[in-house]
Simulated assay, not measured.
Amino acid sequence: MRVAFASSNLKSVDAHFGLAESFIIYDVTADKIEQLGVTVCPPGEAGDEDKVESKLNLIKDCSVVYCTQIGGPAAARLVQKSIHPLKVPEGRPIQEELERLQILLATNPPPWLAKKMKKEQKEASAQ
């Protein structure tokens, strides 16, 4: 499962989704955590629509995005693209969130996460 974190320091979740300058991307399974890279948002994005759309394009392969805040319209657009936004307290260490997610994947994921996992497994077996 690909996961994005809105972060400027690459160590903690410290950014509002719409104001994030970068996202750090991980692939997370019950058995491993692999950092895939960092995406940097283009400077000088024009309007709000352009800003949200450009961020959506950066994280389009992710199932979950962690941020400190997100507006209702942006959250709705993420959900339409099958990306689940999660708000966490500012400064929350990314490593801790990765470990929590890994435990959820291995034990008792909430229904929305179990549904995403099934969908990803189907897509992977179809390839």
Rank of each mutant, 00 (worst) to 15 (best):
R92L: 05
K115F: 01
G47S: 10
E21Y: 02
E90C: 13
S54D: 14
E53A: 14
S8F: 13
E21W: 04
A4G: 08
P89M: 03
E96H: 11
A114I: 02
K32C: 07
D50E: 09
V65S: 04
D14E: 13
D61V: 01
S63G: 14
L113S: 04
K119Q: 01
H84F: 03
E99S: 04
N9E: 08
K55D: 06
W112I: 02
S8E: 06
T29V: 08
P111I: 01
K118F: 14
F5L: 08
P73R: 15
F17D: 07
R77I: 00
P109H: 05
Q102S: 01
E97Y: 00
V3C: 07
D14C: 10
G44V: 05
Q69W: 12
G72C: 06
A106Y: 07
L36H: 00
F5K: 08
P93T: 00
L58V: 03
L105T: 01
V3P: 08
P110V: 05
S12H: 09
D48N: 05
S125K: 07
E45H: 12
K122Y: 05
A74L: 12
Q69A: 14
S54Q: 09
S63R: 09
M1E: 02
Y66I: 10
G71H: 07
R92F: 03
S54M: 09
E97Q: 09
K87E: 05
E90H: 13
V64S: 09
A4Q: 06
P42E: 09
L98K: 06
V52M: 06
Y26N: 04
F17H: 11
Q35N: 15
P43S: 06
A4V: 13
G44M: 15
K11F: 11
P43H: 03
C41R: 15
C41E: 15
N108E: 11
Y26M: 06
C62P: 12
S82P: 00
Q102W: 10
Q102M: 12
E123K: 15
P43I: 05
A114M: 07
F23W: 01
K11D: 11
T107S: 05
F17R: 10
Y66F: 15
Y66N: 11
I83L: 07
D27R: 15
